[in-house]
Amino acid sequence: MRIVEPQGFPAGTRPGARADRGLVAPFLSAAALAACCLCLPSRAMAHVKWFAPFDVAEPPMPISAVLSGRFPLVFAGFALLMAAGFLLDRLAAASPRGGALARRGGEEVEERLLRAGLGAFFVALFTAGGAILTPELKTDAAWPAWLQLGIAASMFSPRTCVLGAAGILALYGYGAALYGAFHLADYPVFLGLAAYMALTSCGTGRPRRLRMPILQASLCASLMWAAVEKWAYPQWTFPLLEERPWLLFGVLPSDFMVVAGFVEFAFAFHMLTGFALSRVGILALGAIFGLAILDFGKLDAIGHLPILATMAAMFVHGPTPLQRRLHEIRRGLLAEAHRAGLAFAAAVCVFVSAYYGLQRAEHGGGHRPEARGGRVAVATAAAPASR
């Protein structure tokens, strides 16, 4: 009997059991996806800094306050969900359909998707003017717009993509100089895109094979960082929730933000560590971002275009070598599911610690505008006035 790669199950698995799993796994994955799409707070995925006032120098909610209430219970629930998701992924990987989902896609298609998406994004920034990389990163300087047009032009050929990568890094550095490293830590995906485009100009070989793992890690890091923001600064989103009370489903806004943060973090974790169902997670999260665009409009569409293009490329590419290695480990399923839950919990702790640590390192953990030479005023004024 031919065994579908990768062999995520221990040797000696009964063929009958494998066939049963092949029948059951697709239905389980479809049911899980349907449940997620029905329950997720889709419009909470919009980047709050683009639509409401904020101040990154404002001290975040104390850790003790974050960990109070229902946070520990939701944390434990999502850790168990990630462990169960790992088991489901293994079941899907053992089925013929799951094996098809895990096959690698075409690099040429993914590259063209990214180049086209980035080209369109930087043309939109050039046309709008006044933005560095994202809507809230404002500038009065004229040169970023012309650099953005140059980056868009560099996407026409793989050989010139390295010039676009240099331009993206220049804009990122300029944004960090104006707004601070803590603010720009929201967007490591741009660093991943710059690395992808630089490696695209390297011809063939191992450097090009590193493009997607780097880009995928940078996108997941961006989503995880944004998830922590929902816990550290929930008050930034409260005005939007007041305008859209139907999103709460009768839940308190504070509890809603806890769940919304875990939803985003869980999706990012799954896209980084999943295997056979990683494309299902990408598709579901892409649908959520699409629903957010319907609510928030053109600004949200342009701002999220690099993320959507990256997710489209990830969908085409399929699992990376890192994901394959994670799921080729021959250990007991329950032991591996336990490890997956612990890894999710550890990732949450690492990102929360990094978020609070960087905010304190740059802003002192307190609100002292006089010590920052005007950066607070720039960051606060960057967001549009509350609607």
Rank of each mutant, 00 (worst) to 15 (best):
G274T: 07
E336P: 01
G77F: 05
A84S: 09
G98S: 03
I307P: 00
G281C: 10
G22K: 09
S201V: 07
F289A: 08
A128V: 12
A312K: 09
A312M: 10
L277C: 07
L169R: 15
M1A: 10
H270N: 06
A65L: 04
L342I: 10
T320A: 01
A100M: 08
L291Q: 14
A266P: 03
G274V: 11
A268C: 02
T139I: 03
L210D: 06
D300H: 15
H317I: 00
F351K: 14
D89Q: 08
R208Q: 14
A284L: 09
F256Y: 15
L80S: 13
A11H: 11
H47Y: 10
A345E: 03
P135M: 06
Y355H: 13
M197I: 05
F296V: 08
M314Q: 13
Y355F: 13
L125F: 07
L215G: 00
R112V: 06
L240N: 05
R103D: 02
G332F: 06
E336N: 08
A57P: 00
V251Y: 03
I168W: 01
G16T: 14
V263M: 01
M197L: 15
L299Q: 15
S386K: 13
A371R: 15
L252H: 13
G164K: 12
R18W: 05
E362S: 07
F71E: 12
A52Y: 12
H47L: 09
G290V: 02
L342M: 09
F351I: 11
A52L: 11
L223P: 01
V251G: 01
G8M: 03
L193Q: 11
A221R: 14
P319G: 02
L291R: 15
E5W: 09
V56S: 06
I214N: 04
G366C: 08
G274W: 00
T134V: 14
C202T: 13
F269V: 01
H327M: 10
A76F: 09
K230V: 00
A152D: 11
L199M: 14
V48I: 13
V56G: 01
A377Y: 08
Q216W: 03
Y355Q: 01
A35P: 00
P207T: 10
L252A: 12
I151D: 01
A102V: 08
A385Y: 06
Y187V: 13
L33E: 14
R90F: 00
C37S: 13
L283D: 07
V24I: 12
M271T: 09
R97N: 00
P62A: 03
A176L: 05
L184K: 11
W225E: 09
G192H: 01
A31G: 05
V376A: 07
D55S: 13
I302Q: 04
G303Q: 15
G365E: 04
G250A: 07
A292R: 06
R208C: 06
I302A: 04
L118N: 10
G12L: 05
I3F: 04
G167K: 06
F269P: 00
A116K: 14
V48K: 06
R97H: 02
L247E: 15
G12W: 03
L247V: 13
A266D: 07
M61K: 14
L91S: 11
M271E: 05
P207G: 04
F351R: 15
P26I: 07
L358D: 03
A100D: 03
A93Q: 15
A30D: 02
R330K: 14
A312R: 13
G12Y: 02
A276V: 04
A170Y: 04
A232N: 08
D20A: 14
S353C: 05
